[in-house]
Amino acid sequence: MLISVASGKGGTGKTTVSTNLAYALGKRAVILDCDVEEPNAHLFLNPEFEETENVTTKVPVVDMARCTLCRKCADICRFRAIAVAGKTVLVFPELCHSCGGCFRVCEPGALSEGLRELGDVEKGVSGDLGFVKGTLRVGEAMSPPLIKKVRTYHDLSRINIIDAPPGTSCPVIAAMRGTDFVLMVTEPTPFGLHDLKLAVGAVRILGIPHGLVINRSDMGDDKVRDYAKAEYIPVLMEIPFDRRIAECYSRGGLIAAMVPEWKESFMELFQKIQSQVLS
């Protein structure tokens, strides 16, 4: 099973939910940190990594000795990653989406494949829990290919918890697409509600069953609950504001590891997700 944990914005407690849920499930689960710009699940789960894979993408390299300056490459590139300037052809690797178009149209065979580094994927364990983490190279702007790579490390015989990046754009879609369930984490504030609506919009386009975790549920107002009710989105868990939780988080600890009742609550959360997926 594939469960993605998402939130419309950062700082809602998404990582708290994904790490505690993964911890509670233990050896039955693998957590995949797809928040590649700022992976932080490892800070709470302290995994030991066993292998690292460098992830690259193909970009064109021009051999000017063969190039006839025909411009076909520049004309076909939607991303303007390759340009003919005077008597040279320039490649802007950071703009290239590796669509392969230029390679196909270059008749003299002046283009060969070069590599641009996107980041890396590390694989390991945190106790019995499987742990996979993607890290985007600093300065790299294109995270979806790396996120897709992280996701290939899933283990379908187990429960895969995918920690999605915040927001509602391409990287989040790459993390949620094809998952069995999207767990959305939000706060009962106007900002939380606003971002939740955007996130729900994206999830509905993808057609994935989804449910809500309301974090700091005793703060703010009832508008998130009212919205969830009106939209028939099940609220699967509420986490009240609790100094112990905040302290635990700031020390890089897990509430499910410290307080047995919380471990049970996260197990219950999983059972609710399971019954939502099966129904």
Partner: peptide, 9 residues
């Protein structure tokens, strides 16, 4: 994106 590159070309 790439408006500058296009204009430069």
């Amino acid at each position: 994106k790439g408006a500058g590159i296009q204009a430069a070309t």
